[in-house]
Write a protein that binds this DNA or RNA. Structure first.
Length: 912
RNA sequence: GGGCGGUUAGCUCAGUUGGUUAGAGUACUUGCUCGACACGCAAGGGGUCACAGGUUCAAAUCCUGUACCGCCCACCA
């Protein structure tokens, strides 16, 4: 059997993906005789393909689900995709733009049809990527947030909430994208400080043409809708002006100068222009002071004709301002600033950096204004969501997220659920054309409005059957909020819903804690009266080397497919798991993948080693008696069991990083570096019985390693597992290793530790003295303690072979050995005889350097022991330890000093 | 302005409830084709744990403050 030296992931991965799929190992059916463990995927948007963040998110879920499956649970992981609302529609619009087309070139039906085709295509891409990643989702249960069943759930939920009176229509300030022409929520725009200007505009005082009040503004174009100038009532500069009128420049409309506490005296001039229609604060102020509203900017961010109507109403002579009608807000700004300058209303302009909201999909600056939207009342639902988190029905891992979660819910405003786009769940409200005069004026209490999944037959008011459906769609998070229920067929009481719901854990990044997690909890409580999952596992965001969030525009995205191609899927998975420290964002770079790839290769090669030494005697493992086992065997089994315990705990505590580190350490530094080497003396010997015994241990350890590692690295572990066992069973459905306390052997651990230290010390001398491997040298180990002599004696062959030395002798003499380099390991004095090969000066330097270290160490112990307080107050165990350590170090120091003393005479006399 | 996190070896990061001489990977130095692996083996060098106080017998670890970096929330004319 020829096995390549380098692990080749590609074929292996394809092979097992197919087999797992063919055997339907990912599939789960409700089975009341078994305990269920369920996870629902955070459905990726069908905007394109998966990024490394998705890979992390899904990997973590896969680790948990595979772990639970191997631990006897009926594990079910529901996969799916999200229609993604505005985000996806924008991707489509961008595609159209490339072809020189736009949304308006199509009818709504045509556009939605195109979107469906797109969603289908990208959805498939995403699913295939998840599949390739090794995600053990139940692919037979694939869902989409806008498929028929989910549609039903959304409509049902909307209608229920509507009937309960929780959904209402109102005119509110909303964030609005003038390019997308829809309301946005906080996840749909990004707010950042941007460089801009602050313009100081002089507003003349009525009847006092020489006097002005100067306001500072970042948005001069909105001045057309100003209906007041406000100052702080305590502002001495303006006290006399309050109550007077200012004349709006260019427009010549009179506006009152008012006093309001909310005005910041320190900002700008301390006087602020008030545009109630286009600013949330101004709106609030307008309500307090009963000011008029004049809309200046329309849905498309163009100047409205309202400004002229307003002028006419006040019989103010028309002027150049009316030319602005229909112009874009930016253009209008330029023109206005020019006009103000020309007419000497502009006092000055200065640079100013302030916050700007931009639509996160099209980068257009968000406009905020009053708009008629559908809202969902949040206060009661939020209260319940707060309660369940406080009383622990839902727990957060790590729990530091509890506080922000609560804070968000406590300040929650009603949720604007309507969007003026075409892609999404259309609001299931129908208006009787006969009874409802103006659709814009519809509210929930008006007659002739019906909440219904399908078009109503007849209007109960007028008896006619001419209906029109609301043209808005629901916020994409509305369907997401129902996801943990809807994937199991809710609102129908399906077997799946009964068996798998509530789910066990939700795994997600913290960026959607509010938007999604909180809302799922609220709807879960509302409709099912229980939390949708008991645990919320919140992982970090993947960032690049410089700590920047990965984004296409920054060009720093890592494509998981590229990594999988280059290093293998298991390497990608291991690297992500290894770096994914709970509660922290993670930075990842190529080096991590190289490390993981090398680790996979190490595992591959150690299994090659085991296989090569199995011969044809590959047998089922039977636990031999401990008496048959050597110290090294007991040691590795002890270490293995410790690893089993710790890895299991780590995964159960949602810490795959810890699990990965433990496994790396055990496999590489314990099993490969030491046990494998120890075992060679027996494997290459002639005693068949001994050989077989050590083979059994190897099989046992390797099999356990593979199982432990399988949730993180499924492919390579399955491949090796199938090679080393004759079982037909797949590793992914085998039993996860169980901790066996009887295998823990502290004595073996201690003694092997000693052996390792002695070997390392000898190797060190070899290395420093530049002793070639080919030079077989003799070594004499002098023992002062009988206990250690026994250990060394019993493990002599290991020291011989691992330190590559000729022979070991014992001596009781405390005489220095001629021509030797020395090392002290605890109570063991080692003399490596190097006749003719020793560099005396080097040896002296080496020992003196050691002495410096020892002295330093000794000092720390001395300080402690001479400290009365330490001796009295410290934990007695700690005192004992320090005392012991002190004694040991002192002994060691004395021994080295002795050697050096002897050295003095020896150098010239060549006694050494 | 409020909150959260970070600052540990050249680089990327671990470090559980305070208690071995503070660890890993990588990079670096030296030596290795020794019957799993050069994607490797062996040996080594490298850190005042951001800074300043405090608590404690004892602090990378707990507390307070400072600086810088990052994120979230709110405000900003």
């Amino acid at each position: 059997m020829e096995i390549p030296k380098i692990y080749e992931p590609k074929e292996v991965e394809a092979k097992w993906l197919k087999e797992w799929q063919d055997l339907k190992l990912f599939h789960s059916e409700p089975d009341t005789s078994k305990k269920s463990f369920s996870i629902v995927i955070p459905p990726p948007n069908v905007t394109g393909s998966l990024h490394i963040g998705h890979a992390l998110n899904n990997l973590l879920q896969d680790i948990i689900i595979r772990f639970k499956r191997m631990n006897g649970f009926n594990a079910c992981w529901i996969p799916g995709t999200d229609h993604g609302g505005i985000a996806t529609q924008n991707v489509m619009e961008k595609e159209l733009k490339k072809q020189g087309k736009k949304r308006d070139d199509f009818t709504r039906e045509e556009f939605v049809k195109m979107m469906e085709v797109w969603a289908e295509k990208t959805g498939k891409t995403i699913i295939s990527q998840l599949h390739k990643l090794g995600c053990s989702c139940d692919w037979d249960r694939l869902c989409f947030t806008m498929d028929e069943k989910r549609k039903k759930a959304v409509n049902y939920a909307f209608i229920k909430l509507y009937e309960k009176g929780l959904i209402y229509r109102a005119t509110r300030f909303v964030d609005w994208c003038p390019r997308c022409e829809t309301a946005l929520n906080e996840s749909e725009y990004e707010q950042e400080d941007e460089k801009g200007k602050l313009w100081y505009v002089k507003y003349p005082i009525q009847n006092e043409p020489e006097k002005f009040i100067t306001v500072a503004t970042t948005r001069p174009e909105t001045m057309l809708g100003d209906t007041a100038v406000a100052v702080n009532p305590n502002d001495e500069r303006y006290k006399k002006l309050v109550g007077k009128n200012a004349v709006l420049p260019l427009v010549n409309r009179l506006i009152p100068i008012i006093a309001d506490e909310s005005v910041d005296m320190k900002f700008g001039t301390g006087a602020v222009k008030i545009t109630p229609s286009h600013d949330l604060n101004d709106d609030a102020m307008a309500k307090r002071h009963n000011l008029a509203y004049i809309d200046v900017i329309d849905k498309k961010a163009k100047i409205t004709s309202n400004i002229v109507l307003d002028l006419k109403k006040q019989s103010i002579k028309n002027n150049e301002v009316s030319d602005l009608i229909g112009k874009d807000r930016d253009e209008a700004r330029k023109i206005l600033v020019e006009l103000l300058k020309e007419k000497q209303f502009l006092e000055k302009e200065e640079n100013y950096t302030g916050p700007k909201k931009r639509c996160y999909r099209c980068d257009t600056i968000v406009e905020s204004f009053n708009s008629k939207q559908w809202f969902l009342k949040m206060s009661d639902m939020a209260k319940r969501a707060i309660d369940v988190a406080k009383n622990g029905e839902t727990k957060f891992f790590p729990d530091k997220w509890l506080k922000p979660y609560l804070l968000w819910l406590e300040n929650l405003k009603d949720w604007c659920i309507s969007r003026q786009i075409w892609w999404g769940h259309r609001i299931p409200l129908w208006y009787c054309k006969n009874c409802v005069e103006k659709i814009e004026d519809v509210t929930s209490d008006i007659k002739g409005v019906y909440a219904s999944q399908t078009k109503p037959n007849k209007c109960s008011v007028c008896g006619k059957s001419d209906f029109i459906q609301d043209s808005d769609v629901l916020d994409t998070w509305f369907s997401s909020a129902l996801w943990p229920m809807s994937v199991f067929g809710w609102p129908d009481e399906t077997n799946e819903l009964k068996y798998y719901y509530p789910t066990n854990v939700l795994v997600t990044g913290h960026e959607i804690l509010y938007l999604w997690v909180a809302r799922m909890i609220m709807t879960g409580l509302e409709f099912k009266n229980e939390v949708p999952y008991s645990d919320v596992y919140i992982h970090g965001i993947v960032r690049d080397k410089k700590g920047k969030k990965m984004s296409k525009s920054l060009g720093n995205v890592i494509d998981p497919l590229t990594i999988m191609e280059k290093y293998g899927t298991d390497a990608l998975r291991f690297a992500l798991a290894y770096q994914g420290i709970p509660g922290r964002d993670m930075q990842i770079s190529d080096e991590n993948f190289v490390m993981a790839r090398n680790f996979a290769n190490k595992l591959w090669n150690v299994s090659r080693f085991v296989l090569m030494n199995m011969g044809t005697r590959m047998t089922q493992i039977k636990d031999a008696d401990d008496t048959d086992k050597e110290l090294t065997d007991k040691w590795i089994l002890s270490e293995l069991n410790l690893t089993i315990k710790n890895v299991t705990e780590a995964i159960e505590n949602y810490n795959p990083s810890e699990a990965s580190r433990l496994l790396y350490e055990f496999i590489w530094s314990k099993y490969c570096d030491w046990y494998v080497e120890f075992s060679k003396t027996r494997l290459y010997g002639n005693d068949e019985k001994t050989k077989e015994a050590v083979q059994k241990i190897h099989i046992e350890v390797l099999e356990n390693i593979l199982k432990l590692l399988h949730p993180i690295m499924p492919f390579i572990t399955e491949e090796i597992f199938q090679n080393i066992t004759e079982q037909k069973k797949n590793i992914m459905v085998s039993d996860y290793p169980k901790f066996d306390g009887t295998k823990i052997n502290k004595t073996a651990e201690k003694e092997i530790q000693k052996v390792i230290e002695i070997i390392t010390a000898v190797r060190n001398i070899r290395s420093v003295m530049n002793i070639k491997l080919s030079d077989t040298v003799d070594i004499v180990v002098k023992i002062n303690s009988k206990e250690t002599e026994k250990i060394i004696s019993e493990n002599k062959h290991y020291i011989n072979s691992l330190a590559k030395i000729g022979k070991i002798d014992f001596t009781k003499s405390s005489q220095k050995q001629n021509h030797s380099a020395s090392a002290i390991v605890g109570d063991v004095e080692i003399f490596v005889l190097l006749e003719g090969k020793i560099d005396f000066e080097l040896e002296r330097k080496r020992l003196e350097a050691q002495l410096i270290k020892i002295n330093h160490e000794l000092q720390t112990y001395e300080t402690k022991i001479s400290n009365k307080n330490f001796m009295e107050k410290a934990d007695p165990e700690e005192v004992f330890r320090v005392k012991q350590k002190y004694q040991e170090t002192q002994d060691k120091k004395k021994k080295i000093e002795d050697i050096i003393k002897n050295f003095g005479g020896g150098l010239n006399g060549k006694r050494f």
